[in-house]
Simulated scan of single mutants.
Amino acid sequence: MANILAEIVAHKHIEVGERKKFRSAQSLEQSQLFQRSVYSMRAFLKAPGKTGIIAEFKRKSPSKGIINDKVTVEQVTTAYAKFGASALSVLTDTNYFGGSTDDVLQARNVNNIPILRKDFIVDEYQIIEARAMGADVILLIAECLTKAEIDQFSTLANNLGMEVLLEVHSATQLEKITEHVHLVGVNNRDLTTFTVDINRSFELAKLIPSSKYKVAESGITGTNEIVQLKQAGFDGFLIGENFMKNANPAQAFEAFSHALTQQLATV
C-alpha cells in the first residue's frame, strides 16, 4: 500500500481550510459544549468497574474498506459505556474513515464517559473544534507531526482542559513526548503500510516514561492480549475493529467485556 498517511494529511490540510471558512474558531468557542467540564480519560482508565478499554466507533478504514455502516453511534457507544468501557474513541474523518463531527456530538449527547476525538490533527482549529463538539481527549500522531507542533497542540489542548493522547509507532518517536502529553499510545499498526504487529506495544512499553499513561492501540483481538498488556504496564487498550466488524458491535463488546472481567478475576 502506498503511503496513505501522507495522502490523508495532505487532504486534511485542505479540509480544515474549508471548514475554517464555514465556521470561525471564535464561533466554536461560543458553543454550549465548549464550556462544559471535561472527563479525565486517565481517571476513567483506573476507575473501579471499568475495563480500561477505549472502545472505538469506526465505519470504515483505508485498509479494510467498509467495516460496519449499518449501526448507529447511539446504539454502539451506549452499549460500550454500559458494559464497562473506560472511554470512547470516535472517528471524525469523513473521506477515509466515514466519520463526522456529528458522530462525536451524538455520542456526547448519550454518554457520560470520556470521548477521544480520533482524527489527524494538523491545525489548532481542530482542537478548538474538538472541545466544541464535546470531546475530552485529542489524538496527536507523532508520525505526521514535529515535536514543536506536538508541543504547540498539546499545550493548547491542556489549556482548554483536555487531555492528549500521543500516538507513536517507534522508539525514536518517543522523543516527541512533551510536557502536556498525558497518555502515550503505541499503535501496533504501521500507518504507512497498515500492517499490524502487537509485539510493538511490548517492545516500547518499557521505554515510555513512567509519568505517562500507556495505551496499546490496534490489533487487540482477545482477552489474553489485554491481560498480557496489563502485565507489561499498559493502562488502556484502544479497540475498534474487533467489535465493529460484527453485525452487532454492542453484543460483541458485552461478551468481550464479560469474558475479560472473568479472566482478570482469576489472574
Rank of each mutant, 00 (worst) to 15 (best):
M1R: 12
M1I: 11
A2H: 13
N3L: 11
A6D: 15
A6P: 00
A6I: 04
E7M: 12
E7K: 15
A10H: 12
A10E: 15
K12S: 05
K20M: 12
F22E: 15
S27F: 12
S27W: 13
Q30I: 03
Q32P: 07
R36C: 10
S37A: 14
S37V: 13
K46H: 13
P48G: 02
T51I: 02
T51K: 01
I54Q: 11
A55Q: 10
G65A: 10
G65D: 07
I67H: 06
D69N: 14
V73Y: 03
Q75V: 00
T78A: 06
T78P: 05
K82H: 13
A87L: 06
A87T: 08
A87K: 08
S89I: 10
V90F: 03
T92Q: 07
T94C: 08
F97T: 05
F97P: 02
F97C: 04
G99Q: 09
D103K: 06
D103I: 02
L105Q: 14
V110K: 13
N112F: 12
L116D: 06
R117K: 14
K118S: 08
F120K: 10
I121G: 06
I121F: 12
D123M: 10
I127E: 08
I128V: 15
E129C: 11
A130Q: 11
R131W: 08
M133V: 15
D136P: 11
V137A: 04
L140S: 04
I141T: 08
A142Y: 11
E143F: 11
E143S: 15
C144N: 13
L145S: 09
L145T: 06
T146Q: 07
E149W: 02
D151P: 00
S154K: 03
T155H: 13
A157Y: 04
V168N: 01
V168E: 02
H169R: 06
A171F: 08
A171D: 12
Q173M: 06
E179M: 11
H182C: 01
V184H: 02
G185N: 05
R189N: 01
D197N: 13
N199F: 07
R200W: 00
S201D: 03
E203Q: 14
A205R: 09
I208Q: 01
I208W: 03
I208C: 01
P209V: 02
K214N: 01
S218C: 00
S218L: 00
I220P: 07
G222Y: 00
T223Q: 12
T223D: 00
E225Q: 15
E225R: 04
I226L: 12
V227M: 08
V227H: 00
A232I: 03
G233D: 05
F234C: 07
D235W: 10
G236F: 07
I239A: 09
G240R: 07
E241H: 05
N242M: 13
N242Y: 10
M244N: 06
M244Y: 05
N246Y: 14
A250H: 04
A250N: 07
A252G: 07
E254T: 10
A255Q: 15
F256S: 05
F256Y: 14
F256C: 05
Q263F: 00
T266V: 10
V267E: 09
